[in-house]
Design a protein around this nucleic acid. Structure first.
Lengths: 230, 230
DNA sequence: CGCCGTTTGTCAGGAACCTGTCAACCGGGG
DNA sequence: CCCCGGTTGACAGGTTCCTGACAAACGGCG
């Protein structure tokens, strides 16, 4: 089984990540600071390491550099704060393989992790199985290119909109509560009493259902949430 | 076996929860206040924790925060009073995974618990086995989509109507008293002197039995309540 | 068989609730 | 500086819920 080491001091975030990664079938280990992260990585090298650059004690840079100097070869995905351009650069120079800026959607992170794994283990059937196309009505979604078309014509979705659509699809038609959608698309500890989910749903309907007052595919389930009807 | 820890100071409610959860096949442990809840959660981490936010002594918030800070990863479902909007937000921000507002129907709670377990233990066949369909006469109920069809044609039920139908179904044909239905669907244990249950039954009959004066499936048991005949 | 108290069915109105929609705001990036 | 995506709260419209009053049905009993 694929193992992922998350080095993240924020307990909430770490919890959310573990949750979502485990749902995807990964075995997850969490370290709360730099030293612990290094120790765990040495004792039992993971397939992928997710590393927050802002850590108490030894910071993420040092962890990364030290491990690479020791010859650790697993791919490392770093988490940076928004706008810390230099962090990304420095991280990549020190041997990180990719980066995600906070705050980020879980689906985005998962996509990156999968990409890293595919790169690292090209032996299997890497790129092939990840090219998945699904459709409903006259809408077609290509997960490889993150492209959506309606009746053959391309529709541009904002990142959150795309992620939300994907989250709905993953339910295979079953209802998804707002909280489920929140944790899947937005990640951790999201307050669900705002109209955030609904607003994005409305946008999806506008773009994919002609804004019809009676959507045929993106359906409301009163008191619960939404579901996608193929 | 799946273990659930209920932290609830109201003895009646705690007893009711234990009862219902045990019927569903869970192993239940109850703590009557915050400290006891924390102790039990530490000694023996449950698969799901149900936590009342209004507790004597250390309140639920502190319990939740402390456990999360210690790295506890099990899903937590919080119980909040109606209208305490801020409680929900705070709870979710502290790492709760879902919330239910009091008063709540047992069925609703059970559904939430199952959802949490499904998220946490994706090992099995997550979404698949939850797709359950039952039928009686020409009516078909799909619990995954919360969809009801009669003779192939979709019938839209209001949330309470759907819940009530589900409660009847779970009795497997045995009678359910009005009080039973009340506590299962509405969460009130109060004596039933209003026509609430009857009204909803009438609506179900109208939608699913053509409003016939002689229902064939949703039957009245005089002096007791109702039962569902497949 | 008819009476009577009790139980259930039905109905309608208003309260409470939920979702769709919008406009304002915020922060980042060009 | 403006634009864009994302988020939020306010608001409106519609739905759903609940309740109490009344009618109908039932069952026991004289």
């Amino acid at each position: 089984m694929t193992r992922i080491l998350v080095v993240e001091d924020n307990a909430d975030l770490a919890y959310g990540l573990r949750n979502n990664l485990e749902i995807e079938g990964y075995q997850v280990d969490v370290a709360e600071d730099g030293p612990e992260g290094m120790a765990k990585a040495r004792r039992n090298p993971p397939d992928v390491m997710i590393l927050d650059l802002m850590l108490p004690g030894a910071d993420g840079f040092r962890v990364l550099k030290t491990l690479r100097d020791e010859g650790a070869g697993f791919p490392v995905l770093i988490l940076t704060a928004r706008g810390e351009e230099t962090d990304k650069v420095r991280g990549l120079k020190l041997g990180a393989d990719d980066y995600v800026t906070k705050p980020f959607g879980v689906l985005e992170l998962l996509a990156r992790v999968e990409a890293l794994l595919r790169r690292a283990h090209p032996g299997g059937n890497g790129t092939k199985e990840s090219r998945e196309v699904f459709r409903f009505g006259e809408v077609e979604v290509d997960t490889a290119t993150r492209t959506v078309t309606k009746a053959g014509r391309e529709v541009t979705l904002a990142p959150k909109e795309y992620d939300l659509l994907l989250a709905l699809f993953k339910r295979q038609g079953a209802v998804a509560s707002r909280i489920d959608l929140m944790t899947q698309v937005w990640g951790y500890s999201a307050a669900v009493l705002s109209r955030t989910v609904d607003t994005h749903i409305a946008e999806l309907r506008r773009k994919l259902e002609n804004g019809s007052p009676e959507p045929k595919h993106i359906l409301t389930v009163r008191k619960i949430g939404y579901r996608l009807q193929s």
